[in-house]
Simulated scan of single mutants.
Amino acid sequence: MTYDSLNQLIRAGKSEFAKGPIALIFVEDDVEIDSTIRHHLDLGFLKVFVFMPDAFELAGDLAEICPRVRMDNTRSDQVMQAVSAVNDLMIGQWVYYCFNAEYLFFPFCETRTVGEMLTFHTEERRDAMLTYVVDLYAPNLDETPNAVSLEKAQLDRSGYYALARNDPDNHNHPKERQLNFFGGLRWRFEEHIPADKRKIDRISLFRAQPDLKLREDFTFSDEEYNTYACPWHNNLTAAVCSFRTAKALKANPGSMFEVKDYRWHNSVPFEWHSRQLLDLGLMEPGQWF
């Protein structure tokens, strides 16, 4: 099914939306569109909606099973609008969103589905899940100028840190159970990244509720959704392994000639396995074993 616009999708109403979890994938360019969709289908999402311009193509088998929504420009305001609109149709169900060339990993995802993981998370009385956007990049930019290589992907094994998230409405006191996380390419090449775009935390998985709105910094209007854990113990977190920053640094005129190589002494090959991310502390199993 193809929809000409977000409004047409919304008019279709709940008949188009299966019981969650569902995934929303926003396509910014023609890089690794199919692999992104297949990865999330393999995780167990019941339906994957693809928001993309007409100029980009989907593989035939994916076009048959994934509703496609025309979106000519995936600017942040349009993404926020789309996520918030889908929220209003999915009350009580789990929703995930990402961009092309981004791949969700959660603890033990090789043997457990995203539905099983979210069932456990719901039983812990959690309605959202913190994800860390872990930068992936090609090791040789001469061979792969767009910085994307699934076969040779690398990531940073260290260099991640967190700072308190201050509340301007409460005398800048730190918000309870909220932190701003930094690291990866956005940290190493921060001179090319606007200050308000440098953090790597994102609330990528959330359970829809009335009047919930996604904000431009990938947090939600309900502050409890933005917490990394409940008050009584640590909870599950996940990772979105992403080529998005690597692509952007090589595509933007201000940085494309300045960035010669992403490799440094803490670069390691990405194993495409949750165990590596758990070992590096890039996600947390909480009480789920």
Rank of each mutant, 00 (worst) to 15 (best):
F220W: 15
N140Y: 08
M71V: 05
M1W: 06
Q8W: 03
M71W: 08
M71L: 15
D30N: 14
L163N: 11
E123P: 00
F108L: 14
A18T: 13
I33K: 06
L249N: 01
D169I: 04
A82E: 08
V31R: 12
L212F: 04
E28D: 11
A195T: 10
D88I: 00
L141V: 07
P231T: 07
T74M: 13
E223D: 13
A101K: 08
R68Y: 04
N226I: 05
L24V: 09
Q287H: 11
T144L: 11
E16T: 10
M80F: 11
D135S: 08
A85W: 02
S204A: 15
K19L: 12
A23H: 08
L58N: 03
P67D: 05
T119Y: 09
I10P: 01
L141P: 01
V240R: 02
G184T: 03
T245G: 01
E216I: 08
H265P: 00
T219I: 04
D29I: 02
Q78I: 01
F45D: 05
M256H: 12
P21M: 01
V50E: 08
N170L: 12
A164Q: 14
S204F: 02
Q276W: 10
N252W: 13
V259Q: 01
D142C: 05
A12P: 00
V133L: 11
F289M: 14
S274I: 09
T119H: 11
L179A: 07
T219W: 01
M129V: 15
E216V: 04
E124D: 11
L277R: 10
M129K: 03
P139E: 12
R157D: 08
N7V: 08
L236T: 13
C98W: 01
E284H: 11
E176N: 10
M256D: 08
N170W: 04
N140W: 06
R198G: 03
T237Y: 00
D54L: 15
T245Q: 11
F106W: 06
D4Y: 07
G92C: 03
V83K: 07
E224T: 13
F51Q: 09
R38S: 13
E102V: 01
E190F: 05
D34A: 15
M1C: 07
D156M: 09
P269F: 02
P253E: 13
Q78V: 06
T2Q: 15
W187V: 05
V268S: 09
A229V: 00
L136M: 13
L212I: 03
G159M: 10
W264K: 10
M71G: 03
L118H: 03
R215L: 14
Y97K: 04
N226E: 06
R68S: 10
F108Y: 15
D135K: 00
K260I: 12
T122P: 00
A229M: 12
M90K: 09
N146C: 09
D4V: 07
L212C: 03
P210L: 02
N7M: 08
K152P: 00
